[in-house]
């Protein structure tokens, strides 16, 4: 871990990963040779966050909110339209060399444990692949893969030579974690990585992730629709709705005193295991609208119970401090929302 200790020397706690004004829209139809108005899906607009060493940021939201696209944009699996990403102060993406280095420092674990392993490679070969790409000699890469298998709780003697289809979903996800760690990353992105697992296995994997974060001094970006899991594993949480960040802050702050009506609705949709603590009324009605036809003004206004005229005409600005932010007219005195507290 020598390279890592060198980095901690940076004074003033420079954020390890910094994401600034990340945006992406996808072209859907029109505007080409055939004419017509060009239509776009605004997949992600203006995402900003910092990730400090050894900490975890959770990204929550419903399907279509842009959380997975955010992960792919950070990894440069999709090219962002705009935005700056830097790791330890070094900007990423300007030249191929910085991208290759970045892809070694940042790794990703996907939801579908089976689709993310090549069925023709043995477990060992899959784990070794990334390291050999970055010039690690084969013998060393194999040793490391065995170490990591051991570390994620799979006996290398039993599993190294097996193929993915011979493993259970939980075991495969452990392999994917080992594969991500094989290139000695600083940041690991988990895109719904525990969502497909059985609950008892999910708990095992979450425990493992906590141990690994400490042992390898990792930072996590943890994307999930499961609010319980995000609360358990994250230090900071970012709530997204239709491609926009609606609330951001330390996880206990956001969970205990949510400011945005959407965050409040999301949190009161969390189910309790206590049969005496049942939900009486759904916090919001309807489905999220299609990202193709975004409402004007605040994108949550059609489902919001505090909606006022201003919400339908003006998109709220982000207010708050560097560590705690909300995008809602309700908490912005300047906006003149009738229900605004101040």
């Amino acid at each position: 871990m020598n390279d890592m200790t060198a980095n901690t020397a940076t004074p003033g706690g420079t954020p390890k990963l910094s994401v600034r004004e990340l945006s992406k829209r996808f072209h859907v139809s029109g505007g080409g040779l055939m004419g017509g108005e060009a239509r776009y899906v605004h997949a992600v607009s203006d995402v900003n966050f910092n990730l400090d060493k050894g900490t975890t940021i959770g990204i929550v939201g419903e399907s279509g909110c842009g959380k997975s696209t955010t992960a792919r944009l950070i990894m440069h699996l999709i090219n962002p339209d705009s935005g700056k990403i830097s790791l330890d102060g070094d900007p990423v993406g300007a030249d191929p060399a910085s991208l290759k280095k970045f892809r070694r420092d940042v790794q990703m674990v996907f939801q579908d444990s089976s689709a993310s392993l090549n069925p023709r490679l043995t477990i060992e070969q899959s784990i070794m692949f990334g390291a050999t790409i970055h010039g690690t000699p084969k013998a060393e890469a194999r040793k490391r893969s065995h170490y990591l298998l051991n570390r994620v709780g799979l006996d290398p003697a039993r599993f190294a030579g097996r193929y993915p289809h011979e493993l259970s979903g939980g075991q495969r996800q452990r392999v994917n974690i080992a594969r991500a760690l094989a290139v000695q990353p600083k940041v690991v992105i988990f895109d719904e990585a525990v969502s497909a697992l059985d609950k008892s296995v999910e708990a095992q994997v979450l425990n493992l992730l906590n141990e690994l974060r400490e042992e390898f001094e990792l930072s996590y970006i943890f994307i999930s629709h499961d609010l319980h899991v995000v609360r358990y594993i994250s230090d900071t949480v970012m709530v997204m709705y239709l491609g926009q960040v609606v609330e951001y802050g330390p996880v206990e702050d956001v969970y205990n005193t949510p400011q945005h009506p959407y965050t409040k609705a999301l949190l009161s949709s969390m189910l309790s295991v206590d049969p005496d603590d049942r939900t009486d009324a759904a916090p919001i009605q309807g489905d999220p609208p299609s990202p193709l036809d975004l409402p004007s003004g605040c994108c949550f206004s059609p489902r919001c119970s505090h909606v006022a005229d201003i919400c339908r005409s003006l998109s709220p600005r982000i207010t708050g401090t560097r560590t705690r932010q909300v995008a809602c007219h309700l908490v912005d005195p300047a906006a003149g929302h009738p229900e605004c507290a101040t």
Binding site: L77, R103, F110, D112, A115, S116, N118, G130, V183
Partner: peptide, 17 residues
């Protein structure tokens, strides 16, 4: 379109590899 190709890209491998 499969995840493992994306995972390979994410570990910095070139197209030919």
């Amino acid at each position: 379109a499969l995840d493992y190709v994306e995972a390979a890209q994410a570990s910095g491998a070139g197209s030919l590899t």
